[in-house]
Every structure is written in C-alpha cells, then in structure tokens.
C-alpha cells in the first residue's frame, strides 16, 4: 500500500515512518506541507492508496488538504487518516466533513497507528477488489451487449437449435449438393411478420432470444422432414427441405405459429411479445444446375418471404419458377 504522510514536523514524520515500517508498510512518501503533498500527488506515476494528514500546518491545513485530495477523481474514496494533537470535536467534525475516513490523535501509540493504517489497508484492498469486480462486470456487460447486438439485417448465428446453421454454412451446404440431391429439395423461407416493429421495441438481447425461439419453432414445424434452416437477417429464416412430396406450407406455417404461441414469448421485462411467422413461396430446385444455381435459389426464397404480400390464388403458395429463373 502506497502511503503519503504529511506533517510540518520532521520528527513526527520520522515517528510515522518508524511506526509504519514496524507495521510492515514500506511504501511511504512524506511531505512537510500541503503544497508539497499536492505536488507529490500531481507528479505520482502511480496513485497513493492512503493518506496520513496532520491537521495543523501553516498555510493550507490538513483539512483543506483533505478537501483538495477529495476533489481529485482518483482519490474520491482513498482512505485519509487525520493525525491531530487536537481532540476537540470541531476539528474532527470538520475533518470528516472534508472527507477524512479516520483520525488518530497525537500522542499516538506507534503500534496503534500501524493497526489503524492496517484498517485503512483493508479498506483499500476491499475497494480494489470491488473495483476489479466492477471492471470485470462492466467488461462482461459490454462484451455481452457487443455479442448480443443484432442488426436487423444481419444474418446472425443462432446457437443450440437443431438443424439451424449459419447462412454461410447453408450456402456451402447447398453448393455441394449434387443435381440428384437437389432434385428432391425445396427451399422456402419464413419471415417474422412485422419484424421491423418488433426489432424497434426490443432490446438486443430480447431480439436475439426471439430469433432463437422462432428458429426453434420453425425447426419444430419441419420436424417431419430432413431440413436445414439458416437465419438470413431481417426476420427471415431460409429453409432447405428434402423430400419428394410437395410441402404443405399451410400446415408447416400453422405448426410454426402454434409452437410460437405455446412458447408464450415475453421480453426481459415480462411483457408478452406477439409474434407470428409467415412462409414465403417455395422454390423447387430440382431442375436447376448444381452449384451456384442452388445458392441463387436460396436468395429467391428469401426474396419471396420478404415480399410478405398476398399469397397465390386462393391463398395458396405457388412455386416461384419465374422468379428463380430471373435470379
């Protein structure tokens, strides 16, 4: 613990040094006046941890010095032990009003002084530990917020949901599918209805949780099929589903919404979040060439979901060959 002792009496400073040294406090700086103390504080390459201040000194007294120290941001909570031959209450009150944390009256027992400074040292250690914990918590919070921050259009990674992979991974996946594999593959996308509004009223963490929950619902709705899902940003989940039969998107969409409803989603303040998903028109990729064509099909499916307009005739989903070919 780095201590600065201030007293205009050289013998008192010597006595303080002897007492503190005996108590194991080796890192001591001394000043013979308040001005000298403030100069030392200003020039210190690392801050002092504790101050011992004589009250009665010429020019600026110890109480004024204490007040000046307290005005320095680095020393707002550093222990300041006043050392005074004056036991009158007014001095003590003034010292505490100026920010002192303890006082010792002269004459003092050298061993007792060591004990009092030891108490201050524990205070310093406690504050340091608290500051370290606080710094760690702040750092974690920042990291959490940084990691949790979601841009609406960002195709974020959703963890721990079966069959849900990153968009880049899904593109890589469809890229490697052979023409045969593509033949029995459908691609479509879900979109969260009114995602812009939900995003605007949700905290980043709430929005991320929401995206994860909806991904879970989509995956559940597709449980009867071999599938992969990726979040593509803007509330859109693109799904690659294998199977020779046509997808009943009405059932799938209904199931997804039922699962979402059963989740009874709320934000972190416990407020219910009304969420619905809508399935966009599917893209059958059976006849396209493998490779980039399959990746393009993903983009068409995403665009279909983004349109969010009225469905095909009779409210049914129509396959988007035309759009796909344009893409």
């Amino acid at each position: 613990m780095r201590i600065l002792a201030v007293d205009d009496d050289e013998m008192i400073l010597d006595l303080l040094a002897a007492s503190l040294g005996a108590a194991g406090f080796a890192d001591l700086a001394i000043a013979a006046s308040a001005r000298e103390a403030l100069d030392l504080i200003a020039a210190a390459d690392r801050p002092f941890d504790c101050f011992l201040l004589d009250i009665q000194m010429p020019e600026m007294d110890g109480i004024e010095l204490c007040r000046a120290i307290r005005r320095l941001p680095a020393y707002r909570s550093a222990p300041v032990v006043m050392i005074t031959a004056m036991s009158q209450r007014s001095f003590i009150d003034r010292a505490f009003a100026a920010g002192a944390t303890d006082y010792v009256t002269k004459p003092f027992d050298p061993m007792e002084l060591g004990t009092r400074v030891g108490l201050a040292a524990r205070l310093v250690e406690g504050q340091r530990a608290l500051a370290e914990k606080s710094d760690a918590v702040t750092s974690l919070q920042l990291q959490l917020e940084r990691e949790r921050f979601v841009d609406l259009n960002e195709p974020i990674s959703i963890q721990d949901v079966d069959s849900v992979i990153d968009l880049q991974a899904l593109e890589n996946y469809v890229l490697q599918l052979s023409r045969g594999g593509l033949f029995a593959t459908s691609i479509f996308a879900f979109k969260i209805v009114g995602v812009e509004t939900i995003y605007s009223v949700s905290s980043p963490i709430d929005f991320r949780y929401l995206l994860t929950d909806v991904a879970e619902a989509c995956s559940t709705a597709l449980a009867q099929h071999e599938h992969f899902i990726a979040y593509a940003g803007n509330g859109v989940y693109v799904c690659v589903v294998h199977g020779r039969g046509a997808l009943d998107l009405e059932v799938i969409e209904g199931t997804a919404n039922l699962v979402v409803e059963e989740m009874a989603l709320t934000n972190s303040r416990g407020k219910p979040m009304a969420v619905k998903v809508r399935a966009g028109s599917p893209v059958r990729v059976g006849l396209v060439r493998a490779g980039r064509g399959a990746v393009d099909a993903l983009r068409v499916a995403i665009a279909n979901a983004e349109q969010d307009g009225p469905r095909g005739d009779g409210g049914k989903w129509g396959e988007s060959w035309g759009q796909f070919r344009l893409a």
Binding site: A17, A18, L20, A22, A26
Partner: peptide, 19 residues
C-alpha cells in the same frame, strides 16, 4: 529519510525491535 526508515523497518521483518 523517514521514507527510507519505513522501508528498512518493513524489509527487516523485525518491526518492533527496529521501532
């Protein structure tokens, strides 16, 4: 100096005797 005293006393590990 007073500061050196404190340092030597603390380093010696024999505080009361040096005091």
């Amino acid at each position: 100096t007073a500061a050196t005293w404190a340092d030597e006393a603390a380093q010696s590990g024999d505080g009361p005797a040096r005091l």
